[in-house]
Nucleic acid binder design. Sequence first.
DNA 1: CAGATGTTTATTTTT
DNA 2: TAAACATCTG
Length: 668
Amino acid sequence: MSRFRLYDLNPEQQRAATHETGPLLILAGAGTGKTRTIVARITWLVSTGTPASKILAVTFTNKAAREMKERIAGMLTEEQAADITASTFHALCMRILRADADKLGYKNNFTIFDEGDQLGLIKKVINRVTAKDEKLDPGLAKNLISKAKNNGWAPPQDDETVIGAVYSRYNRELHALNAMDFDDLLVQAVKLLNDHPSVREKWRSRFSQMLVDEFQDTNRLQLDLVSLLASGEPPNICVVGDDDQSIYGWRGAEVSNILEFEKHFPNPEVVRLEQNYRSTNQILTAANRLIKNNPRRRAKNLWSPNQGGDPVHVVAVPDDKREAEFVIGEAGAIRNAGGLPWEHFAIIYRMNAQSRLLEENLRRMRIPYRLVGGKSFFDRREVKDILATITCLVNPQDDISLLRIINTPPRGIGATSVEIALEQSAKIHRSLFDTLTDPAFEPEVSRKTAAAIRSFAEDLAATRIHLLTPGADACAIVSGYLEESGYFDDLKRSCKTPEEALNRESGAKEILNALANHQSKRRGSVQDFLDELSLNREREEDKKDDSKGVTLITLHAAKGLEFPHVFLIGAEDGLLPHERSKSEGTVDEERRLFYVGITRAMKSLTITHCRNRMKFGSAMHCRPSPFLKEIEGEGVHAESHEDIMSKPAAEEDVAMSFANLRAMLSAE
DNA sequence: CAGATGTTTATTTTT
DNA sequence: TAAACATCTG
């Protein structure tokens, strides 16, 4: 009987990987080999007799699920790896619901509303429910509804409050459209499992071991789902997380899920991973000093056997412009001195707006960079337009998409006509499209408008027939339609700079390419294409993480990543912690955010703060972040921009030009 | 109806 | 600053 090979796990990791049955809580500090441990555990489970098909691993992002699958694939046979279920919460719920949603009164082919669709429907409902000048911000309503769903609050029976009325009306409309929003996927899956023992048993017996990654980010519904699915007595549930990295409280994540894990799953084995394999001790010390100021946490102390390394630099700079210049200059110096690739550097900030100055500088200096996050690709106007067009072609009954494209490009169907049609459609309980194409509607609008509507509907219908013909080239048909309808011309015309036009064009191309790809590679229908996009909104470009250059990224998006050299900019009071967090009493979460930022760094960390910063177009005076006081101490050096600039960079220059030369030679 | 011009507002965003 | 949105004018 050969002993299980434990790779190079440390004793704690080993204990976690080889835990047999019952609840297991792995408190995995930043950089402590969390993924390695999960993967080792899955491998161990399989090698000790758990059928691979009975293992369920749940993550938050598609990326995490994909990476987990990849790493498992390296450890097991192809067949075993393929048998393991590694999926996001939402995709798992989708699977559960696709099989049995009819038991909840949905059709099993329900559609998924993404945030855009959701907002569109909410706007519509607000118009319907509230009086003309009773304004309710749709974005706010969306957040409140989401919060309500995640807290398990049913819509009120009466329509006493405006928001209550909007909530219940919104839910009814969604249901009538046979649609679910992201929150519904969880709400309804939990409901299904709760109310239907047969379904519950089916899924509980499907899996015998369950693992949940990033448990500190789970919300109440996700905890419910986990409780419902975890099988065994006591349940075989393994959760991995770090309460110190809980930064999604504003999204409904409940740190209490991990803080009070014992309450939900009694007598768990608790394993603490505290040995850090990522950062120098100097960086870890700073991180530890900071995070211990948080109350309500599971005390941890990250340590690393490797002493030494550069001190953490805290640099005061005059303003945001010079901050950008400074960090890029420093990155360049480190790069040249060590002959390093730009991929080793990341600049991390609190708000997306901060990336602008950095981008300008990087572009001017011809330094490659990749911007992570920001406004999603799918929020770009041209992408939304094109997706709405495709949706309408597949399903003209989709009012939200129809509204988006009905007068884009301008085709003579203006707001007033649309308003009339909307009212009419509510009255006769039919879709907007059906209302518009009903001969009875014609007298409601001017002759000219009626003709415009007829022409629009005819074009749409004709294209739809082409598109739904088996074997049709969907991409060509959609492009053709967009061209002929004048959409591309309109798009180009609306751009102020040629640069923007080029940008929009590439966005349009990208989404159309994705459609072509989907068709040729997976031979899927156009409907499949839309479905998949709503659950898996990643760009091909993001999937392969090999895009070169300096990484520009927000603190939130940086969680889970690491970089040899990190610059954390804008460490100012009001920005980090954000002004708003102070009024909302969530400064602890800001501290965790700062902690996440610090712990991304492997070799060097430079933190900057400005004395003045442009905010909303005017210069504002800034005080350093109070968090900087908390990390003060041995291994953390505070300097000012002036000190550094007046110091001659003597020997480094020589090394620099040398390294420069070498880098240039090896690059070509 | 369409295009132009003024007004308001301002985190973070896994699905 | 800039982008989304409301309001005005031809």
